[in-house]
Design a protein around this nucleic acid. Structure first.
Lengths: 233, 233
DNA sequence: TATGTTAGTGTAAAATCAACACAAACAAAA
DNA sequence: TTTTGTTTGTGTTGATTTTACACTAACATA
């Protein structure tokens, strides 16, 4: 196979905005996993986990690999966000960034750890440090996407454990969307979709009434979706 | 500046799904501009207009350039769609495709023409020929995006001329969404947003009652949008 | 056994949506 | 000038959906 294109090429990186959520917190908030850069440029600054795309891996695979290598996270929800291509976004040269969004529950997937020599840390969305490159823009875009999408696709469940209470579910949405819902109306609407399975289990341990545990019925959602069903919050 | 990354790099192309719409047709439909390939691979097949990203242009600029060079179209609505990165999507080697969607009205922007040696042609969405590369996938993704987005963002107006009638507006939405609307309810809802300006002009010429001409109030939409207003069809 | 806290539940008023028909206006033809 | 054919433009009513709102049940701990 003769390489047809000998022009200079931009390098291509993938960068991941990993949203973490902990339903166990008193006042839960969205968090983002960042990595402290040990090398120039932006040495000492925080950046999104990411790296260059290899020739023998798809973009999705590259994102999954970076997620694992840099954040120690596997098998979570991940989707492509946007490709950033400003000419001078990387001082080392022309580098495109294909960005991804991942959603992880902080109970299931351990609170960071951070692999290799890199220091990884979770930051509250409203307490982000200054970021390297154009990563602030990427994060902003990611939040907008999350806020938009969570309302008409049931991706929010990815932020919760497999079994969760109604209150935990509602808190998650309130946290993301920055608004409150009426408890009864919220339950009524969720119930009406028939996408929650009562597991029979109860969330005990706190000195108050125990709460029923539910599970999201992903299979049922997929069949409904094909029939034109619209999830909407 | 020393180039830090010497690894082999994927090539990066931009490809444009250009949706065309002609409100003057009896039975309007969505169309897509395709270009017949004169060279291998996929010689003789139809493909999306596109080309490689240059080192000194942003992705958006590359898309705009291809739109102009290959389709003779300028100054239209365009937005990034998705980046396709399957390893073998191009038989010549590793090529990523950053895809874009453009919306053009076929009265304002002449019906193709086609520049250079390339043959450009508009195809009805439901009569597409076999496409080169993974362009069928790209087109499918583009349609889904258009159908999804048109319902909660007023981008449909980009497919119409500056001044249009209520019926033309309704037909456009019916064409895209593949459904009908009740005339009175449609007008009521549109009216309620206050985004249409009565230009005072009338669409005459046909042997029936003349129709009022309206203009979309983009400025007003932007201010409303900032206040949290949601367009929704 | 008492206390503090969260879980779980129904109803009524308001707002929105969906269905539906006819007169007014125009160009062309008679 | 009148008639004809076709599209524009407009309100109301019933059905559905959304919103607002308060109290008892259940649990762990003291």
């Amino acid at each position: 196979m003769s390489y047809t294109y000998k022009y200079p090429r931009p390098a291509v990186a993938v960068d991941c905005v990993i949203f973490g959520y902990d339903h166990r917190l008193e006042e839960p908030d969205l968090q983002i996993l960042l990595i402290e850069r040990k090398l120039a440029p932006f040495k000492g600054k925080w950046a999104l986990p990411g790296g260059f795309v290899q020739m023998n891996e798809t973009l999705d695979a590259a994102a999954a690999r970076e997620l694992k290598e840099e954040a120690g996270i596997e098998k979570v929800y991940i989707e492509q966000l946007y490709t950033f291509g400003e000419i001078d976004r990387d001082p080392r040269g022309r580098v495109l960034s294909v960005s991804y969004v991942a959603l992880v529950n902080l109970e299931k997937h351990r609170p960071s750890a951070g692999t290799d020599a890199e220091a990884a840390e979770w930051f509250s969305l409203n307490k982000l440090p200054p970021l390297a490159f154009d990563h602030k823009t990427i994060v902003k875009t990611a939040i907008e996407r999350l806020r938009g999408k969570v309302r008409y696709q049931p991706i929010g469940f990815e932020l919760l454990p497999d079994e969760f209470t109604f209150t935990e579910l509602q808190n998650m949405y309130e946290t993301i969307l920055q608004r409150t819902f009426d408890k009864r109306n919220f339950r009524k609407k969720m119930d009406s979709y028939g996408l929650l399975i009562d597991t029979g289990g109860m969330r005990r341990g706190k000195p108050n009434r125990a709460a029923k545990l539910y599970r999201f019925d992903g299979k049922r959602y997929k069949t409904l979706e094909k029939r034109g069903f619209l999830f909407e919050l």
